[in-house]
């Protein structure tokens, strides 16, 4: 077998989340959002992870990009979305219920399903927009004994090395060099994600999505209750027609804040 040095096998972890435009009604058991009127979208940072994987493959000239998502049947929509942007195939780890799962349990399930694939690189989003755990990609890296880096805002990958520019706080950055294989979480803004082409959308229909049943064993952290946060500050609410709002704003700017 000829080993192609430039070949890189990349997994992109993609989560489906409730879109930011959805009305957020707390479900009757108070443990999650009532999903019956929710619209679902790809977790926004994961778009950037897919784009980065595509760019790495294109730069190296060869490789495979596999979209991996765990969740109920509906998550196949975001896998297809990844495939329509050019990813090669998908893996769906299917759960029976739609509820939230402990990130460590998600990570173990994903590991179990992808271990045999021996990915060179796993890209994930920095954090999910719904629960904001910010850990799944790193958990998987540790469980699969990979090197890890978070908050990547640029990558520089050639045959030998994986270099990642990490975002630090308050406008600072740092380059890290990682041993392969590696699991890297991607910060938004790293690239400008492409839109699927019509050809891509048609082609995606023929691509393989392997379905593996999830097995949830135990959960180490449980979401017990969801509630609306209490307001701590006194706020004047101005909820009226446009002209009255404008008049009140002028008044506030002039007399209360003394902005001019």
């Amino acid at each position: 077998m000829i080993i192609n040095q430039k070949y890189m096998k990349i997994a992109v972890l993609v989560k489906q989340v409730i879109g930011s435009e959805s009305a957020l009604e707390i479900s009757s058991d108070q443990k999650w959002i009532d999903e019956s009127n929710a619209t679902f979208v790809m977790n926004p940072p994961d778009n950037y992870a897919i784009e980065e994987a595509m760019q790495i493959k294109e730069k190296l000239g060869d490789g495979e990009v596999v979209i991996v998502s765990m969740g109920p049947q509906r998550v196949q929509k975001v896998i297809r979305e990844g495939l329509s942007k050019g990813a090669d195939r998908g893996i769906h780890i299917e759960t029976q219920e739609s509820k939230n799962i402990d990130p460590l349990e998600v990570a173990k399930n994903i590991c179990h399903s992808i271990e045999q694939e021996n990915f060179d690189l796993i890209l994930s989003g920095l954090q999910s927009d719904d629960t904001g755990m910010g850990q799944t990609g790193v958990l998987i890296g540790e469980l699969l004994n990979m090197s890890t880096a978070t908050l990547a805002i640029e990558t520089d990958i050639d045959q030998e090395t994986i270099k990642v520019k990490r975002e630090l706080e308050s406008g600072w950055f740092q380059w890290v060099t990682l041993d392969s294989p590696s699991s890297v979480s991607i910060q938004s803004g790293i690239n400008q994600p492409r839109y699927p082409s019509l050809k891509g959308i048609m082609g995606a229909k023929k691509k393989e999505i392997k379905v593996i049943a999830a097995s949830i064993e135990d959960s180490k952290q449980n979401l017990d209750k969801i509630f609306v946060p209490q307001k701590s500050k006194e706020t004047e609410v101005i909820d009226t027609d446009v002209d009255a709002s404008v008049d009140r704003i002028v008044d506030i700017l002039r007399s209360e804040i003394k902005a001019f």
């Binding site: 910010g134 135990d218 180490k220 979401l223 969801i226 946060p229």
Partner: peptide, 27 residues
Amino acid sequence: PDLVSVENSSFTKQIMNSKLNASISSS
């Protein structure tokens, strides 16, 4: 992660981009 309060082993964190809060417990 990212807790706003801790009360008797019940942890509160913001979810849904700060729109809601969740109480989480550990088993």
